Computed example of a mutant assay.
Amino acid sequence: MTTLSDTDPRTIARLLLEAAGQGEVDAQALLGQILLDGQGISRDAALAFTWFGIAARQGHAMALNMLGRCHEHGWGCPPDLEAAARCFQQAAERGLDWGMYNLANLLATGRGVAQDHRQAFALYLRAAELGHAKSMNLVGRYLHEGVLAEPEPQAALEWFRRSAEGGDFRGQFSYALRLLEQDRAEQARHWLERALAGGNLNFLRASRDRLLALPGLDDLALAYHRRAAELGDGSDHESYQALLARQPGSLS
Rank of each mutant, 00 (worst) to 15 (best):
L180D: 01
E158L: 14
S174D: 11
L179R: 14
P151H: 01
A155Y: 02
G167W: 14
V147N: 03
G167R: 06
E181N: 08
L177N: 10
R170F: 01
R161T: 00
G166C: 01
D168Q: 12
R178D: 11
G171F: 00
G171A: 14
A176H: 04
E152H: 07
V147S: 07
A155M: 06
R178H: 13
F160W: 10
G166A: 03
R184V: 09
D183Y: 14
E145C: 02
H144K: 11
D168Y: 15
E165G: 11
V147G: 01
E181M: 08
E181A: 15
G167F: 15
R170S: 06
P153C: 11
D168I: 09
Q172I: 04
R184P: 02
E150K: 15
L180W: 10
L148K: 07
E158F: 00
S174G: 04
E145K: 07
L157M: 14
E158R: 12
R170T: 12
A176V: 05
F173S: 11
A176Q: 05
G146M: 05
Q172A: 03
L177K: 14
R178Q: 12
L157H: 12
H144T: 00
E150P: 00
A155V: 08
Y175R: 05
W159Q: 12
R184C: 04
L179E: 05
E150Y: 00
F160P: 00
V147R: 15
Q172H: 05
L157D: 02
R170L: 07
F173C: 08
A156F: 04
A164W: 13
R162F: 07
L148P: 08
R161H: 10
E181L: 12
F173W: 10
R170V: 05
G146R: 10
V147A: 09
G171W: 00
S174T: 07
G166N: 01
P151E: 02
F173L: 03
D183I: 01
G167T: 11
E152K: 15
S163I: 11
E152M: 13
G171D: 05
A149N: 05
G167Q: 05
A164P: 01
G166E: 05
Q172T: 02
R162I: 08
E181G: 10
